[in-house]
């Protein structure tokens, strides 16, 4: 677990009063959060609670109506587009719920992993190839399949490939949207195990959006509960899950079936 001293350090990412609107409707409203280096923040809530909207807005994938976003003290909303996009390709990574959204399905596994390196200016085929092989091994994909396309992979493998593709530039922040969604339970467990290992080993800060309490119990240091676009409760994961204060959180935790 992350030491308390690290959490107390200056936040890597700071969000204040983030509001996103879809026309007259609210996507998410007045969301504030701090993310310390190496910290994993879980965001739970039912469908339509605004958690994915919040994540997309933080990633710059949706226009923000109000609020402040800062990364390492720099204002992300005021940042010039080239710099922000460069940051997204190097320091940040996004893992989509559906691997198809995060992968190029017509490009081989090696090409998928190597893309971010090539975007960053890597021009040595041999080195790109080596990095891709290394990362396939790290996400437990047989390196012999480096030239296969993701269409030939199972759902779990596609998701692991997406993670390899996201992490190859050794980012500092990973934003994950339902990373285990749509996978069967044993594959989910393996994926979670892998992610937990990588997050700890690389000292990644992460925001993990999910409706699966089990995922955050395993991965997250802190937890944020959202309902109707607003944050209703935050705290250390165990504290929130074992002693929920807000009525909605109580409902959420009590509606989980224990195996």
């Amino acid at each position: 677990m992350t030491a308390l001293a690290d959490i107390a350090a200056a936040p890597l990412l700071a969000v204040e009063g983030l509001t996103v609107r879809y026309g007259d409707r609210i996507g998410c409203a007045d969301v504030s959060l701090d993310l310390a280096p190496g910290e994993v923040l879980g965001v739970v809530g039912e469908s339509g609670s605004g958690k994915t909207t919040m994540l997309n807005a933080v990633a710059g994938r949706l226009p923000v109506a109000e609020g402040r976003l800062s990364y390492e003290g720099r204002d992300l909303r005021a940042m010039a587009e080239p710099e922000r996009r460069r940051l997204m390709r190097t320091d940040w990574a996004f893992v989509h719920q559906h691997a198809r959204d995060g992968l190029r399905m017509g490009v081989s596994a090696g090409g998928n992993v190597g893309e971010r390196l090539m975007e960053g200016g890597a021009r040595h085929y041999g080195n790109i190839r080596r990095a891709a092989l290394d990362w396939l091994a790290r996400v437990e994909i047989d390196p012999a399949r480096i030239d296969d396309r993701p269409t030939q992979f199972s759902g779990g493998m596609q998701q692991r490939l997406q993670i390899a593709r996201a992490l190859v530039t050794e980012p500092r922040i990973v934003l994950m949207d339902e990373p285990t969604g749509g996978l069967d339970v044993s594959v989910q467990a393996r994926l979670l195990d892998l992610m937990r290992g990588l997050v700890r080993e690389m000292g990644l800060a992460a925001i993990v959006v999910t409706h699966d309490i089990g995922v955050v119990r395993l991965l997250a240091d802190r937890l944020m509960v959202m309902k109707d676009g607003r944050v209703v409760e935050t705290g250390l994961t165990d504290q929130v899950l074992d002693d929920p204060q807000h009525g909605y959180t109580q409902l959420l935790t009590s509606s989980v079936l224990s195996a």
Binding site: M118, G121, Y125
Partner: peptide
Amino acid sequence: GLMHVKLYEDIA
């Protein structure tokens, strides 16, 4: 970067 992904695919 994408342009090089295309060349990468050729070589691979």
